[in-house]
């Protein structure tokens, strides 16, 4: 029992929660945007992989860390555009297209990575983002180091949650986005083209996913290696259901999830006799449980996965 208390009262554990949550926050916001405008984006796993690779490659070849994040966002938006092109004007199956984007984006990332570093036995590293202490606030005992001594992209992710919540609920653009996810015909009747709105929003959401991937290589770790995203993208898709498609709850879900992940990591080292694989399974099982709990309460955007064609009902 005292072991559990030791873990729960350690600064390191709570510091890790925000760090683990950051890529999930960005990814979940990305999925949320896409689904709010009515399109499922299963490309996330591949887009995160590409973001991780491109962010790393940019910095490895001499770019600034922020240029790396920007490159990852642009790469994400490019794959988002491809996904949007196939699913919105052409109205192809969003499931299959998304999986295709994931397979293509991740294998393309590995290909480019291998071209850049043909023969490296251990992946080459970059100098990652360092924790940025917020003056004064970071001196508060316990809360200071936990909340105000994070890397810059983590602060950015938190700000983005607020920006997105405000944008979706307090601006005309946000209203149009939410409406397109519910009833694109009504949006069209208002003189807004739902096709272009969907394309643009999917690109923005995919840019967030790319940035989430880049956080992995530029802040959480300092190198890229294949399969490093490890299903985080799929977990984000599950978290959006848990969040009932709301940005604030998405943050909550990501934090809750990261808490369990940080906790099991520390538990692994103190609990003996339990195989480590059981701990590693927990995040995935937890996501499934979250889906089961929330499935009944979920109010899915009404036009999710329904392609819009003018004049077709």
């Amino acid at each position: 029992m005292s072991v559990l208390l030791d873990i729960l009262s350690s600064v390191g554990m709570w510091e890790a929660v925000l760090r683990i949550a950051t890529p999930l926050i960005l990814g979940t916001l990305g999925v949320l945007l896409c689904e709010r405008v009515g399109v499922l984006n299963l490309g996330i796993e591949g887009i995160m992989t590409f973001g991780a690779m491109v962010g790393w490659l940019t910095v490895y070849s001499g770019g600034d860390l922020w240029v790396g994040i920007l490159a990852a966002a642009a790469g994400g938006a490019a794959f988002g555009f491809l996904h949007a092109l196939l699913t919105v004007p052409l109205g192809l199956s969003q499931h299959v297209t998304g999986l295709g984007i994931t397979l293509f984006a991740s294998s393309f990332s590995y290909y480019v990575f291998r071209l850049a570093v043909p023969t490296a036995s251990s992946p080459p590293t970059v100098e990652p983002f360092r924790p940025l202490a917020v003056p004064v606030l970071s001196d508060i005992p316990f809360i200071g180091p936990v909340l105000f001594n994070q890397t810059a992209p983590t602060y950015m992710a938190l700000i983005l949650v607020a920006v997105l919540a405000w944008g979706l609920y307090r601006t005309p653009l946000g209203l149009a986005i939410r409406m397109t996810g519910e009833n694109p015909h009504a949006v069209d009747a208002q003189g807004i083209d739902p096709i272009w709105l969907r394309i643009g929003t999917i690109m923005a959401g995919s840019a967030l996913m790319g940035m989430g991937g880049a956080f992995l290589t530029l802040a959480a770790f300092n190198s890229f290696f294949p399969t490093m995203v490890q299903g985080r993208g799929w977990i984000c898709v599950a978290l959006v259901v848990f969040a009932l498609w709301r940005p604030g709850r998405a943050l909550l879900g990501a934090l809750l999830f990261a808490f369990f992940d940080a906790f099991q990591l520390r538990l692994q080292t103190v609990v003996e006799g339990v195989p480590y694989q059981l701990f590693l399974m927990l995040p995935y099982i937890l996501s499934i449980v979250a889906l089961i709990v929330m499935a009944r309460r979920a109010r899915v955007p009404q036009a999710l996965m329904q392609p819009y064609r003018r004049g077709e009902r």
């Binding site: 499931h95 259901v241 889906l291 009944r296």
Partner: peptide
């Protein structure tokens, strides 16, 4: 889970892939 609770099987089957491989790892170690 889909028939009983309405849980989308895309995400659950994807997540179970990771669980399955970890289970294999557990058994072979």
């Amino acid at each position: 889970l889909r028939l009983k609770f309405g849980v989308d099987e895309v995400v659950t089957t994807l997540l179970l892939n990771f669980v399955a491989v970890l289970f294999v790892s557990l058994m072979i170690e």
